[in-house]
Simulated scan of single mutants.
Amino acid sequence: MNSPIYVESAEPHPEIPLVGGDVTEGVVRVGDTVRRPVGPNAPFVHALLRHLAEIEFDGAPRFLGIDAAGREVLTFVPGEVAGRPRPAWVADEERLASVGRLVRAYDDAVAGFVPPERVRSGFGLVERPDTPPAPPYPPELVGHLDYTPDNIVFRDGQAAALIDFDLARPATRVEEIMNAMLYWAPLGDPADADPPLRDVDAPRRCRILADAYGMSDVDRSRLVEVAVMRTRRAWFSMKQIAEEKGGGWARMWDEGVGDEIKRREAWLDRNGAAIEAALTAP
């Protein structure tokens, strides 16, 4: 499916750099639009955003086409995003619950999405044979799978919209909410957490997200298993992407993300029982 050519407005606007995120560079705001480099997963993402527009899901930007510079053009989503250093409000439990509700609203919105024929998610990588197995549960929907504080737009203290769908791919609901917990509980060694989240009760925050999402009993029982399996895979996949794609991925690897993943795995081994108890308690 060919992407439409974006027709610029007659009124010129300056390009204002938008900072945030770890990988994508060259993102700018132009008037009421955002311009981003076209990534390897773009055809799939564009089809997904068209679906969200068609069903009038208001928690995502609209894809408008490709500009003369070859960049994808999206509507600018107004609101508040947690930059770096992280604001204290990332620890606020009311905001946390709103993240769970937004993830659920998105997952429900994409439950009926069927990608067009010959359009599949992918990043141009062939999985290496030594990569540990994925969780043994079939995908249920197309997940966003990148719920970092940089990618959630808040309005009036509530999570209102998602941005940056570059990692969208088939997933389970438990993988979706686990990904949100990864950044917002957070799941990992406190030494690696953003300062406002270093002393929080992570199992309690997992429960808040799970309740706000409406997580099923079956998924609650699978959460720790999925988190451990995804963490084990993450070390291998991040190393491969860093080696084959370079750029921001290589920078993250050089800055120690592999060691951080190993610390997360050890932390999950120590705290998995407490997380499962918090998720399944009456």
Rank of each mutant, 00 (worst) to 15 (best):
L268V: 12
W249A: 12
M181W: 01
L48N: 03
R50W: 10
P37S: 07
D92A: 07
D67V: 04
M252A: 13
V28A: 04
L141N: 04
Y213P: 08
V257H: 01
G246I: 02
R120G: 06
G70L: 12
E176R: 00
A180H: 03
P133T: 13
P43I: 04
G20P: 03
P149G: 05
N151K: 08
A134L: 11
L125V: 07
E265T: 01
A53Q: 13
H13R: 14
A274W: 00
A227I: 02
R207I: 04
E276W: 00
R270T: 04
G272S: 07
I163R: 02
R62C: 05
R71N: 15
A180N: 08
A91T: 04
A53S: 15
G188T: 07
G39T: 07
I275P: 04
A185Q: 09
Q158S: 12
E15N: 07
A274K: 08
G31M: 02
P61L: 08
P195I: 07
V226Q: 05
P170N: 11
D58F: 00
Y106V: 09
V226K: 03
P4F: 14
L74H: 10
R232C: 04
P115S: 13
N271I: 05
P87F: 07
V34M: 05
A210E: 08
R169D: 09
N271E: 13
E117I: 03
R118P: 00
M1S: 14
A159R: 01
D58Y: 00
P196C: 07
Y213M: 13
A250K: 14
V119F: 05
R263N: 11
D219E: 15
M178P: 00
F165Y: 12
G188N: 10
R173G: 14
V103F: 09
R263C: 00
V34A: 02
Y106W: 02
E94C: 06
V174I: 13
A278C: 06
P85G: 10
E140K: 04
T131W: 01
R270G: 04
R36K: 15
F44N: 02
G124H: 09
V119S: 01
V226F: 11
T131C: 14
H46P: 05
D259Y: 06
A273Y: 05
R36T: 07
E140W: 06
Q158I: 08
R36Y: 02
G83E: 12
A266I: 10
L52R: 02
D217E: 15
W253Q: 02
L64C: 13
F113I: 04
A68P: 00
A159S: 10
P149T: 06
V27Q: 01
I177M: 11
L182M: 12
A109T: 03
E15S: 11
A277D: 06
P282L: 03
V30G: 00
G247Y: 11
T280N: 12
A105K: 07
V19P: 00
M178T: 08
P87V: 12
D146Y: 09
P12A: 08
L96N: 03
G65A: 05
A227L: 06
P85L: 13
H46A: 07
A10K: 12
L279E: 09
V228E: 13
E25C: 11
E56Y: 09
F113S: 01
R270S: 08
G26L: 11
D211N: 10
R86S: 14
L18W: 04
T231Y: 05
R86M: 14
E11Q: 15
E260H: 05
D166Q: 13
